[in-house]
Nucleic acid binder design. Structure first.
Lengths: 195, 195
DNA sequence: AAAGATTATTCAATAAATTGAGTATAAGAT
DNA sequence: ATCTTATACTCAATTTATTGAATAATCTTT
C-alpha cells in the first residue's frame, strides 16, 4: 500500500491541509497528482492521522479568518527517512483495472452503438485531460532545462500523463474505424446485438 | 466493483475453471486479460462461489485422469443478462495507482542512480510486455478483417495494450536524457542525493 | 524414493477502500 | 432570508483486497 508514501511524497515539497491534499489526489486540474495516485478524502484524513501518530508527519493548526481553521501537515525527519527507504525498494509494475476495457472485451454482447457511444465519451474525456496537461506544461514547464530538481521530477510525471493520454487517443483513432464498418462476411447486416 | 463482471466477461466466451481464470487474470502471456483487470486467485474463487450462489454462473464438475478434478464455470442466461445491463451503464475513467510515478515524483530525495536504475528495469519490463502483445497479435490476429465479432473486441483490447506499452517506451526515451545530464546551473556537480 | 513443481481449491485474519451520513464555518447567489 | 457552494474535517458500516496458511492429486526431476 503506497497511500501513506504518496501523501509523504507530496507533503515533502508542499506542506498542506487534508483538504488541499484531497483536491490534489482527486482533481486532474490541481497539481496533476491524481494522475498517478487517487484517494478519497476519507482515506486521506485517516492516513494523515495515522502518519501523525507515527510521527512521520507533524501538524500545525492554522487559524483563518475567512474560512474554517485548518491543520497544515509537514513531513518530519523520520517521515522523510522512511519515504527515502521506501523509494529505494523495488516495486512492481502498476496493475490496471479498467472497466471500459472489460466492457469492450465483452462488447459482442451489446449493440455496436452502445460501445461506440462509450468510446466517444471516453475519447473526449482523455482529450480534455490531455489539454489540461498540455496547459500545465506550457504554463509551468516552459523551459525544462531551467527547472529545479524538485520540479524536474514533477515535470517527468506530467510528461508521463501526456504520453498516457496521447496513447489513448491514438488507440481510439485506430479502433473507431474497425467498429463503424460492417463487414460483408459478418452476417450482421441489420444491427442486431448478438453474435 | 467490476470483478464479478470481469469474470463473467471472460466466461461468457470461454467457460473455465477457477484455476484457469486465475491464470488469465494474472499472467500477461495467457489471454492478456490481466492487462485490463487483475485479481488474485483467492479473490476469484470467492467470487465464483458468490456468482454461482446467485445463479449467474453454473458449474460442471469435470473428472480428469492426469490432474485433480475441477469445476468448469459457465455463464447462465441470468448472468448474461446482468452482464449486458452492467455494460450498458456509464463508467468512470479508470483511476491510476502507480508506485513508480509516486517515487519519481519524490525522486529529488534520492540519488539519480536510484531512479535511473528503476526506470531501466521498468523500461525493460514494458518492452517485454509489448513483445508479448505483438507476438499475440501476429499469431492470432494476423488478419483483423476476418475476425469474428468476439475476437474483434478482444483484438481491440490487445491493441490498447500495445498502445499503452508503446506510450511507456516513448516516455522512457524522452525522460532518460533529462536524468543523465547534469546541468551547469544545478549546483549538484558531485552526485549528492539532496536538493 | 524423495523432493519439487503444477494443477486445483479452501479458509481465515488483517488491511484497505468504498459508501454514506454528519458537523461546522463562511462566502456568494437568488 | 434562505439556498447553494466551498472550505475543512470526522465517524462508522460494509465491502473488497491482501496475505498467509492449508489441503490434495499428479507429474517431473534428482
Amino acid at each position: 500500500m503506497s497511500l501513506p508514501y504518496a501523501i509523504l511524497s507530496i507533503l515533502v515539497s508542499a506542506p498542506s491541509s487534508g483538504y488541499d491534499l484531497a483536491k490534489r489526489f482527486n482533481s486532474s486540474v490541481e497539481g496533476s497528482v491524481g494522475f498517478f495516485w487517487s484517494a478519497s478524502f476519507q482515506q486521506i484524513y485517516r492516513e494523515l492521522n495515522r502518519l501523525e501518530a507515527k510521527a512521520w508527519l507533524q501538524a500545525e493548526a492554522v487559524q483563518q479568518e475567512n474560512r474554517p481553521d485548518k491543520r497544515i501537515y509537514a513531513v518530519t525527519a523520520l517521515g522523510k527517512q522512511q519515504l527515502c527507504q521506501w523509494i529505494a525498494e523495488v516495486e512492481e509494475m502498476a496493475s490496471i483495472k479498467d472497466e471500459l476495457l472489460v466492457k469492450l472485451y465483452a462488447g459482442h454482447l451489446v449493440s455496436r452503438q452502445t460501445i461506440v457511444t462509450k468510446l466517444e465519451v471516453h475519447r473526449q474525456q482523455h482529450q480534455q485531460r490531455l489539454a489540461i496537461y498540455q496547459e500545465i506544461k506550457s504554463l509551468y514547464f516552459k523551459n525544462p532545462q531551467a527547472l529545479s530538481k524538485t520540479h524536474q521530477f514533477q515535470y517527468m510525471t506530467l510528461l508521463r500523463g501526456i504520453h498516457y493520454e496521447t496513447g489513448w487517443l491514438a488507440w481510439f483513432d485506430e479502433i473507431m474505424p474497425l467498429l463503424q464498418v460492417t463487414h460483408p462476411d459478418s452476417a450482421d447486416l441489420f444491427g442486431r446485438s448478438q453474435n
